[in-house]
C-alpha cells in the first residue's frame, strides 16, 4: 500500500507537470501537435514591415490563421499564410500588412474580393498592400511631397 501511494503521487505530479508544460507550449507557444491543419496561401509584399512567423491573420478583425513563414524572394518578402479550412478566400482578395495600434505588432488583414473563383492551397494572392512605413509617412507630412 505504501509503495502504491508513492507511485500514485509521482504519477499525479508528472501528469500535472506535463499538463502545465503542454498548456504553455500549445496554448501560448502555438506549437502544432497534430500536424498542420488548414491550407497555405502565398503572398508577396514589397515591404513586410517586420512581420514575424506566428503573426495573426485577420478578416474583419477576426483571427483566421497564422503566418507560417517569412522569406526573401527577388528582394521582396514572400509570406506563407496558414489559413483554417473553413475560411474561403477569393483569388482577388486584398492582403495588407497592418499595425495593431500605433506601435503595436504587425498583422495581416485580408479584405475579401468579389471574384467567384476561390483560392486553393499553395496558390498566390496577387493583390497585396505593403506595410505602412510610419516614419516615411511622417517625413512626407513634414517635408511635403518630394
Amino acid at each position: 500500500m505504501k509503495r502504491f501511494d508513492i507511485e500514485l503521487t509521482v504519477g499525479i505530479f508528472i501528469i500535472a507537470g506535463i499538463i502545465c508544460l503542454g498548456y504553455l507550449s500549445i496554448k501560448l507557444g502555438r506549437m502544432e501537435v497534430l500536424g498542420n491543419k488548414g491550407y497555405d496561401v502565398i503572398a508577396i509584399f514589397t515591404n513586410s514591415g517586420g512581420l514575424k512567423t506566428g503573426s495573426s491573420i485577420k478578416i474583419a478583425g477576426v483571427d483566421v490563421g497564422r503566418v507560417k513563414d517569412v522569406s526573401l524572394e527577388d528582394y521582396r518578402a514572400r509570406i506563407t499564410m496558414n489559413l483554417s479550412d473553413d475560411v474561403k478566400i477569393q483569388e482577388d482578395a486584398i492582403v495588407s500588412i497592418k499595425t495593431k495600434g500605433l506601435i503595436g505588432e504587425k498583422f495581416i488583414e485580408i479584405t475579401p474580393g468579389g471574384s467567384d473563383t476561390l483560392i486553393r492551397s499553395g496558390e498566390r494572392l496577387r493583390e497585396t498592400q505593403p506595410a505602412i512605413d510610419l516614419e516615411q509617412l511622417l517625413s512626407t507630412y513634414i517635408f511635403g511631397k518630394i
Partner: peptide
C-alpha cells in the same frame, strides 16, 4: 532533472 522543469511549468501556469 525531471522535477525542476515540471515544477517550473506548474509555477508558470
Amino acid at each position: 532533472i525531471i522535477c525542476v522543469p515540471l515544477l517550473t511549468a506548474i509555477f508558470d501556469v
